[in-house]
Design a protein around this nucleic acid. Structure first.
Length: 161
DNA sequence: GCCAACGTTGGC
DNA sequence: GCCAACGTTGGC
């Protein structure tokens, strides 16, 4: 746990964020250092970002769709939830006229790059690991792009990576 | 490219 | 409130 410098790790929370690497990859995050996690248009995922994610929370960065599919690296929350301004821009692909600056519907957080994994922890590895069977990414039909991760799962994964 | 599962929309 | 149709997600 000292990887992240936490004194009391149980006070932190852990999350998994999905991204298609052709859209935004762990390499992009390393280059940028930090980024805002905009464009999430799912209410449950929004609620996690708006209400629960806190500065310092650990993030598993997951590459979806394009092999190698799996956890490619680690990040942390660097700013807690605030309105996703891309929803207000008609020229943005994630524009949503129901969200307005005086009454925002969609929220985002900022995240900061921490490190790459030594190699991608593949979905196949996750599926094969007895301690990781409850993770959203291995449960049928769970498509949430922002999901909570249990401390025990986080612990297993950082030791794999 | 296929397709199952999901979330949203809109008619009623 | 129900539910069919539709668009999207995301593994394979």
């Amino acid at each position: 746990m000292f990887v992240f410098g936490y004194i009391t790790p149980m006070l932190s929370q852990f999350w998994l964020l999905k991204s298609e690497p052709t859209t935004y990859s762990i390499d992009d995050l390393r280059r940028d250092g930090t980024t805002y996690w905009s464009g999430v248009r799912n209410f449950q995922a929004r609620n996690f970002m708006r209400d629960q994610m806190r500065v310092g929370d650990g993030i598993l960065f997951y590459h979806s769709n394009i092999p190698p599919i799996g956890i490619s690296g680690f990040a942390e929350v660097s700013r807690s939830g605030y309105p996703d301004f891309t929803a207000w821009d008609p020229s943005d692909g994630h524009y949503d006229p129901k969200s307005r600056p005086d009454d925002p519907v969609w929220f985002m957080v900022d995240i900061r790059y921490v490190r790459h994994g030594r190699e991608v922890i593949t979905l196949a590895q996750i599926k094969a690991h007895p301690a990781l069977q409850k993770m959203g990414v291995v449960q049928r039909g769970t498509r949430l792009s922002v999901q909570p991760v249990h401390y025990n799962e986080w612990d297993v994964i950082i030791h794999l990576a």
